[in-house]
Design a protein around this nucleic acid. Structure first.
Lengths: 202, 202
DNA sequence: GTCTATATGCAGATAGAC
DNA sequence: GTCTATCTGCATATAGAC
C-alpha cells in the first residue's frame, strides 16, 4: 500500500466518524502511521482531502440504482434486486450514509456540485412504479413514497447503529450483526407484502 | 423572551445544523442578537451549552413511545397511533434526528449517560408484536424488524431532507412539504398492508 | 518523500469597565 | 446583565533539514 493510499484509508475512517469539523489532521496522520506534514504534502489542505473523501463516498452511494434497473423486467424483480445490491453496497461502507447526511446538513452546498448525475435513473424507477400501479399490478402508491420507504429501511439501521445497539440489543455487537444479516430478506418480504394487492383469485 | 431563552433557541438552531464541532459560539451569539461573552456568562462553556441542547433533544425524541402504548388495545391500533404521534413530534423538531445520530456517531459516550430510561417501553412493544405474531393475527415478523421498519420510514425523510429535495423534487420546498404531509397516512397504510395476513375468508 | 520545528490564525474563554 | 478588549491554546499550514 502506497503512502497516498494509506492516507486515504485513514482519512476515510476519521472523516466518516467525526465529520469535517470534528476530524483532526493529527488523528488522520496517526491512523495512517505517518507525519502530519506529509498530509499537506500529498493533499494541500484539510478541505481538499475532505472533498476527495466526501465525493468518493457520495458517488458510490447514489447512482447505484441505474445499473440494476436494466436487468429487471418488472417492479417486484427490481425491488428484490435493488434491496440486495444496495444492502451489500452499504454493508461495505456502513458509516457512509450517516457521514453524507451529516455533511450535507452542515453545508448544503456540497450537494450542488454533485447534482445532475442521478436525474435519469430516478425518473425511470418512478415510471416503472407508476406504470404498475396504474395497471393495477400493485397497490396504488406514489412512486416517491415507495422509493423512500425502501431506502429508509435499508439505510436507517446503519445510520442509527449506536442507538439501536444500545436500545434493542444491550450493546451486544453480535446481536446487532445478526439483526443486520436478516434485514435484507426481511425488507424484501415487507415491501412485497405491502405492495401486493390482496385478492382471492385462487 | 428572556436572554437565556433566546440563547437556547439560537443554540438549538446552530448546534442542530452544524453539530458540536461545526458550531461557532460567535454564530450562536449573532443568532441570539447578543454578545459572545454573554454566552459564557449564562453557560460556562460551549460543551456545557451543547450538553443542554443535546440531552433536551434526545429526551424529547426517545421515550415518547411509552405513553402511546397504554392507550392502544391491539397492535394495529398502536401502530397507527404511534406513527401519528411520532410524526407530529418530529415535524416540530425536524433537525433533531439527524443531529442526534450525528453526535452519537462522533462520540458514542453520549448515549451511555442517557441510557436506561427506554428499556421498559421497548420491551412492552416487543411483547405486543410477538404476541400477535404468535397468535397469527399478523404476519410472522421479528419485533425488532417491525419497530425499526416503522421508525426508519418516519425519521429518514427528515434526516435526508436536502438530498431528497434535490433528487426527487428539484429543490422545490413546496413539493417536499406536500410529500411530508402525505407520509403519515402513507406509512400507516404501508405498514398495515405489510403485516396483514392475506386470507380469503369473506 | 519524510521528518522536526515553527509560524499563523482563529475560536473558546476571561478580565474588567459600565 | 451586558458590553469591549484581551488572553490562551490548539489546529492548520509552512519552512527547511535530511
Amino acid at each position: 500500500m502506497t503512502t497516498e493510499e494509506s492516507i486515504l484509508k485513514a482519512a476515510r475512517k476519521v472523516f466518516q466518524r467525526k465529520g469535517l469539523e470534528g476530524a483532526r489532521m493529527q488523528e488522520i496522520a496517526d491512523e495512517a502511521g505517518i507525519n502530519k506534514a506529509l498530509l499537506h504534502y500529498y493533499f494541500r489542505s484539510k478541505e481538499n482531502l475532505f472533498e476527495k473523501i466526501f465525493s468518493e463516498a457520495f458517488e458510490k452511494m447514489l447512482p447505484a440504482v441505474s445499473g440494476y434497473l436494466s436487468e429487471a423486467t418488472n417492479l417486484r424483480q427490481f425491488v428484490v434486486f435493488f434491496i440486495e445490491k444496495y444492502f451489500e453496497l452499504i454493508s461495505e461502507m456502513p458509516y457512509a450514509p450517516q457521514f453524507i447526511l451529516q455533511e450535507i446538513n452542515r453545508n448544503p452546498n456540497l450537494i450542488a456540485n454533485l447534482t445532475g448525475k442521478f436525474g435519469l435513473p430516478v425518473e425511470l424507477v418512478k415510471e416503472l412504479i407508476k406504470r404498475e400501479a396504474d395497471a393495477g399490478l400493485i397497490v396504488p402508491i406514489r412512486p416517491e413514497h415507495l422509493m423512500i420507504n425502501i431506502i429508509s429501511m435499508i439505510i436507517f439501521p446503519f445510520a442509527a447503529k449506536p442507538i439501536i445497539m444500545t436500545v434493542l440489543f444491550k450493546n451486544k455487537q453480535q446481536a446487532y450483526d445478526e439483526f443486520l444479516n436478516q434485514r435484507q430478506a426481511v425488507i424484501a418480504d415487507f415491501v412485497l407484502a405491502a405492495i401486493t394487492i390482496k385478492k382471492c383469485d385462487q
